[in-house]
Amino acid sequence: AQVLELVFRSAASSTIPTLLLESFMMGVLLAFIPIGSYLLYVKSRSYMPFVSILWMVLVTMLTHWALSLRDLESTLAGRSMGFSTSLIDLAHAANASKAAAHGEHRAHHAHLGDGAVFGSVFVFGQAWRHLLPLVTETVLFGFASSLFAIAAYIVVRRSCSHWRSRFDLIIPAMVSLMYTLSLIHWAIALRCFTVLPKYAMSGAPLSFQTHIKGLDISLLIVFSLNAVMSDSIVLWRMCVVWERTSSVRMIGAVLLIATLGLNIANIVVLHRIMVYTRWFPRNSRDSEIITTYGLTPVGLAAAFLSLATNLFATVLVGTKAWIHRRQVSHQFGPKTRRTLAGRVMELLVESGVVYTAIWLLYCISFFRQITT
């Protein structure tokens, strides 16, 4: 157990920070290399050898990162040391060695023992549960940071040449706010992860639960704000595409108010459950590690309403794109090239379909694990 504690300490202080940095860089490369390759390809075909080198670098880095992650997982699960680090298996092993030392046969009575080492292994275990969501989030945060840098460059370049009005800056401003919120979310998730190994190493009493609950609520508030803003952008785009038709605007407003209300209600309910330990009906099949929408009926309603909002907006934009294409081919003949408005609408539909599919997967994950 003491060796295990040392291995965990070393993982927390050196291996995991390196892996997180590598994960962030993976996200950055996953954004810059495809966009850079596209720009070089459009500029001149003579850049193709350079582009293929970039992709080879990306594949090598991805392989290295995936192997590092697998190696870390195998260390934390104890496979590289030849035993299981699950608390029950450790208790069995400890009891078996005690029984052997005293010449008794008590190995089948597993209990956690009284040593501080078991407490420390338990808290480390809590930290490792937060690790994989954090690694995923760090890769995506690196990806979002690169996209934000590229978007900021586009906005600055355009503001020097042509912005028609201040209204054009609303979307860049909202996107900046959303990026800031996702930065805060990542910072809190990182804090959640770093607090636990510190408690484990200090050997302090298990008072970390209150601390972690506060951080979990903060994560939920930031995420809910981002989800509501993302839905509002989707609905706003739908209204613009439908040239602000009053019925579409009204449905959009109702959906937005309902999403906002359910998100606030979900935060209130989860705060009562976590902080005041009040009883509420709960979804026992929820597989989330960071509790968001999956635990209570109110949260599930908020998540499914967001899914419905995205689906509804995508279908309406798709319908408008189809009507637009029919009108263009009717007026200028079937072989007319796609117009700018048509291309933008197609892009909105395609991205809407991808985002809706991700929300659908997310909603399924509240009831069963997606992979085995």
Binding site: L147, S182, V344
Partner: peptide, 30 residues
């Protein structure tokens, strides 16, 4: 990918901000 799909609770906060950013850049590139 398996890690990402199994841990959408960590990923969704980032994906909500990636979505509008990606659409903005794709329209600008187009």
């Amino acid at each position: 990918l398996v890690t990402a799909v199994d841990h959408l609770d960590g990923a969704m906060a980032q994906l909500t901000s990636i979505y509008p950013l990606a659409v903005f850049i794709l329209i600008a590139l187009d």
